[in-house]
């Protein structure tokens, strides 16, 4: 049985200009102890879908889902009060900006033990001992002294370690890491990633890694879900995805990696993710797609089967070639 089941999750924001759909029918499933990566550029709804799962979106957001199940609990029907018993305990999250994610007015020790106190109780002494143990676990030197430190006295990397300590304090079954290394410098990025992978192994927890760094995905994840403009456009095992991306967007992301570039110029993907006003009528990726044809601009994309990585595309690629050109009956699709 999978640990997390998301089916057809949609998140809409009430804005002054009308409804904005940030997440559009995303489905996802994560097994116990699995490492899943969600990739996509800014504005593709990666963070929003996970924040929706955690119940951390502002009240302007409307969340609908056919199924939202975590560890056998139906999150859709659960009250906010019951949800709070799960989040921070069995399901935890760390964020992009470690320097602003910790409360500047409280010591590191307070912020770690608070999570323990809320969910596990226990005496003051046991909580403190556990906090020291956690700081050791996340590789912070002199943990006992650090407990009395304030976040501004620590570096960004140290703060992210503290955030991780808070998140894993109650031994969660699932840890969601929302671009945990984006705000850190490169040497620290690798350390934090290694730490997360290491902890996942030690604690046996599942990890969802939100990132826009394909390099990170290649090194770490088992399965990848690619999101674009709020939709999941492809999902594959990492090795298969890198070998044979089926969605033109995935393909474009991969060919923009310097390691994979051929020729002198690094290929880029022109344009940006559509916003509230320039949402295309047909396939959302069509305006930027190298393989788009008439149908793509007119009709919303359909999901392909597992053999094509569930690609949300009229003509999924196989070995870089659109399948429709391989003889699929285009005419038939237009008529139907």
């Amino acid at each position: 049985m999978s640990l997390l089941e998301i089916e057809n999750l949609t998140v809409e924001f009430q804005t002054a200009q009308g409804q904005f759909r940030a997440v559009d029918g995303v489905s996802l499933s994560v097994d116990q102890g699995e490492l899943m990566a969600i990739v996509g550029e800014s504005g593709s709804g990666k963070s929003v879908s996970m924040l929706a799962l955690m119940g951390l979106l502002p009240w302007t957001a409307t969340i609908t889902a056919d199924r939202l199940e975590f560890d056998g609990i139906d999150l859709v029907r659960q009250s906010a009060r019951d949800r709070r018993k799960v989040i921070g305990k069995d399901m935890a999250m760390i964020f992009q900006e470690p320097m602003t994610s910790l409360n500047p007015c409280f010591t590191v020790g307070f912020q770690i033990t608070e999570a323990l106190k809320t969910h596990l109780g226990g005496s003051r002494a046991t909580r403190r001992a556990r906090a020291v143990e956690l700081l050791n676990l996340v590789g912070l030197p002199e943990p006992e002294r650090r407990l009395n430190a304030f976040p501004h006295q620590l570096s960004g990397g140290m703060n992210q370690r503290v955030m991780i300590a808070i998140a894993i304090a109650c031994r969660p079954k699932l840890l969601i890491a929302d671009e945990p290394t984006t705000a850190l410098d490169v040497t620290i990025q690798a350390q934090i990633l290694d730490l997360l992978l290491d902890l996942r192994e030690k604690e046996g927890m599942a990890l969802i890694l939100i990132t826009h760094d394909m390099g990170v995905v290649a090194e770490t994840a088992e399965r990848v879900s690619v999101q674009y403009a709020g939709q999941k456009v492809e999902e594959q095992k990492v090795r298969d995805l890198f070998r044979d991306p089926h969605h033109p967007y995935t393909s474009a992301l991969l060919s923009a990696l310097p390691e994979r570039a051929q020729g002198k110029k690094l290929p880029t993907l022109p344009g940006v993710v559509p916003g509230l006003f320039d949402r295309p009528e047909g396939c959302l990726f069509a305006p930027r797609c190298a393989h788009a044809f008439d149908l793509c601009h007119k009709r919303q994309a359909v999901q392909a089967g597992a053999e094509d990585g569930f690609a949300l595309c009229h003509t999924p690629l196989r070995k870089g070639v659109p399948t429709s050109l391989e003889g699929a009956s285009l005419e038939g699709q237009v008529r139907s």
Partner: peptide, 26 residues
């Protein structure tokens, strides 16, 4: 609107504690 208020909520704290302790203190 600060990140640390989101962190406090992500811990599963009650709204009273999030507002009355984490936000108000700042």
């Amino acid at each position: 609107g600060e990140d640390y208020v989101r962190t406090a909520r992500a811990k599963g704290l009650s709204p009273f504690r999030v507002v009355g302790i984490h936000a108000l203190r700042n």
